[in-house]
Design a binder for these strands. Sequence first.
DNA 1: GACTAATATGACCAAAGGGTCACATGACTC
DNA 2: GAGTCATGTGACCCTTTGGTCATATTAGTC
Lengths: 229, 229
Amino acid sequence: MPKETFFNLPSEKRERFMAAALDEFALHDYRSASVSRIVATLGIAKGSVYQYFEGKQELYAYLVASAAAEKFAFIDASVGDEASGFFERFTSTVFHGARFDFTEPRLASILYNVTYEPGAETLSISARLKAASLEYLDGLVRSGIRSGDLRGDIDVGYVAFALYQLSASLRDYLSERFGFSFKAAVQAGSGSPIRDEDLHEVLRELVALLRGGLADTSSSTSRPTTSPV
Amino acid sequence: MPKETFFNLPSEKRERFMAAALDEFALHDYRSASVSRIVATLGIAKGSVYQYFEGKQELYAYLVASAAAEKFAFIDASVGDEASGFFERFTSTVFHGARFDFTEPRLASILYNVTYEPGAETLSISARLKAASLEYLDGLVRSGIRSGDLRGDIDVGYVAFALYQLSASLRDYLSERFGFSFKAAVQAGSGSPIRDEDLHEVLRELVALLRGGLADTSSSTSRPTTSPV
DNA sequence: GACTAATATGACCAAAGGGTCACATGACTC
DNA sequence: GAGTCATGTGACCCTTTGGTCATATTAGTC
């Protein structure tokens, strides 16, 4: 939805602009992100921004849409069609999603931030994104039930929601556990991909929880009421 | 950490101030919350706020601490000691936590907002709160393993984190599913408690997921690769 | 070189923010 | 009533924000 002027720009200039804008919104939430700061970084006049976009909101919407399109394309291309079972497909989707996040911390941060935008101005943008993710998971769960991978008595709506939360929050867990700072990565401009083994180890935990739950079903005594000294 | 002046205030005035400040921070995130708006609502001079608190940050920290103390006290008093198993204790904690949220939407919203504060200014405040919750869940999981309720091979750190995410996000799910708007409730000044049965129904889903997972273990064929026409 | 249309510019605006401070007010003591 | 000390006040300061617009520059065409 940028103005025509933006697309008429020499691609080098357009990309320089996008890079600066993505940086700004990756490092700050919507309200804190500053158009003035973007133009200061680029050394261009503020008026130029308003030749490209109607305003801050439109700029933001465009950045979010770009980031989302890139991430979805990456996941689609990576997951492929061979993974057929529910848990395999889910694992693969989350795995490649996380790989994308660590490789493209700038885009990932924007998509992460938008999830938690509280303001009314950004509501439609964030709601659309969340709805798309939930819809995908909803379909995945339904087909998992149909194929017999999942129990038939689960509440599809709630389970899709839980999967959404657990996969979205993975970023927090991974960055804490492996000491990865997305903010620092954005500032450094470099994505240092996480080790696949580390990622798989965490995903194994997540999928084990989702697959079989936490309850101990092995032992003979269901729960020893007193310590067996 | 408010100044002495604040505690010297006639309790009526102090409570009026607290009410207005809680409203403001329940309805807006830290940056968007406005000291000017609080004093305008109360009809007092802006200087007064700075007689009570060092600044906006200290005010915010105090409000968050107050809300957290009240919620924890409520949960502690409600859960009691009779619930002994892991899933019973977890359910009871989440249940009463949710009851608190719907009864005190103002305090609940502040505690919810602080979780997603992105700014550096509020980092220590939100980190402390999150750490306290994780520590509690960590202990709960450990004792669950010790008592034999939980499998011994789970990753305690990750499971505590997952429990944290699932219980924290319950608010979103409940408010969407039952059409409850926390914002509207704060503005109306009234908490309309959710029906206990509705809450229990959702908690049953959550605990079923946590207890036994999603995999269908009943059938003879683990997964029919082709549809059985 | 002249005309035209697209693009770039940055001084400027109004609004809002947190915070300050010299002063006013009130209450209590002697 | 005078003196004192805690409290209240609001005009004011500085900064920053998103956004505007008259003007300047550039590029392309004849």
